[in-house]
Amino acid sequence: MDSTTHSAEDSRRRELGAFLRSRRERLTPSATGISTGLRRRTPGLRREEVAMIAGVGTTWYTWLEQGRDVRPSAEVLTALSRALRLDTAEQRHLFILAGRPQRERRVDAPEKVDSPLLHMLQSLVLQPAYVLGRRWDVLAWNSAAAAVFGDYGLLEGDARNIVHMVFTSPQHRRLLVDWEELARAVLASFRAESARYVGDPDFERLIALMTRSSPEFRAWWPLRDVARNLSGVKHVRHPIAGAMAFEHMSLSIDDGSDMKLIVYTPLAEQNSIAKLEQLLETLPAERRSA
């Protein structure tokens, strides 16, 4: 290990210890149900009290706060998060400082696109864009997306899923130039992102459905190819406008929801900008956005 790496790890451990200490010092004994009976010289909990609540050794916890080379497990970090009453952002920060991946928790509540994101989506007048959920379901879209890719409002359930559309929709297959290359890229990116949800019933059901419905999916999924395609160029063959070219970018929504915004920018080639403008002029009002 070189000195630079060693120094970086030392700094991370010191920051981890300082973060734990700051959370401990802000927490009052009464908030955790500890009865002291005596006036304290310093605010917050003592180290031995945090250790007791979390179920770890006092000496070990002291070393952790001192920035020593101890490596807490995910289970211990979770116990410390509960003991210190950390919120979601603080717990995520703790796991990052400790160098541990945080386990994904299944979210049962329906995914919701908040108003600020919807407003931004609608402001992208000449850029087809849509919001994807954690399973790549299309949750919201703008008028330009409806004009180029079709009316998502006509699709329900699994049919409004990007993987489902790419592999089972004849219309979508005709729309995409170089379909096989794009389909393989979509599958590899979906597998990479779905690794955080292995065993999730909604993901498992979609994968089972795709395996039954698409021979290409059935053949390629077992190959376990993975990729992270955040940007690129997509060529489409629109049934009305003809050939068009777009540069696309995937932008993560940093709110813990695992949603992402996909934006397509029309390129000068194939006269794509003018063609998109014409499509928007003729788009029926009821198909413009959702």
Rank of each mutant, 00 (worst) to 15 (best):
S115G: 05
P116H: 14
P116R: 14
L117E: 09
L118W: 07
L118P: 01
H119M: 13
M120F: 13
M120Q: 12
M120A: 15
M120T: 11
Q122T: 05
Q122V: 00
Q122E: 15
L124D: 03
L124I: 03
L124E: 02
V125C: 02
V125I: 11
V125N: 03
V125M: 01
L126D: 12
L126A: 08
L126Y: 10
Q127K: 11
Q127H: 14
Q127D: 08
P128N: 07
P128V: 08
A129L: 00
A129C: 05
A129W: 00
Y130Q: 11
V131M: 06
V131P: 02
L132D: 07
G133A: 08
G133H: 09
G133I: 02
G133P: 07
G133V: 04
R134W: 14
R134S: 11
R135Y: 15
R135W: 15
W136F: 14
W136T: 08
D137I: 01
V138F: 04
V138Q: 07
V138A: 13
A140P: 01
A140M: 10
A140S: 14
A140I: 01
W141V: 00
W141D: 00
W141L: 00
N142Q: 06
N142H: 02
S143W: 01
A144V: 02
A144K: 04
A145H: 13
A145M: 11
A146V: 01
A147Q: 02
F149P: 03
F149A: 02
G150Y: 09
G150P: 12
G150R: 06
D151R: 07
D151I: 03
Y152L: 13
Y152F: 15
G153M: 09
G153T: 06
G153S: 09
L154H: 05
L155E: 10
L155D: 09
L155N: 04
G157A: 13
D158V: 12
R160I: 05
R160T: 07
R160M: 09
N161P: 08
V163Y: 00
V163D: 06
H164A: 09
M165C: 13
M165T: 04
F167G: 01
F167A: 03
T168K: 10
T168D: 12
T168I: 06
S169V: 04
S169I: 02
S169G: 08
P170K: 04
Q171H: 13
Q171Y: 11
R174N: 10
R174A: 14
R174T: 06
L175C: 06
L175P: 12
L176T: 14
D178M: 06
W179M: 04
W179V: 05
W179D: 09
W179G: 06
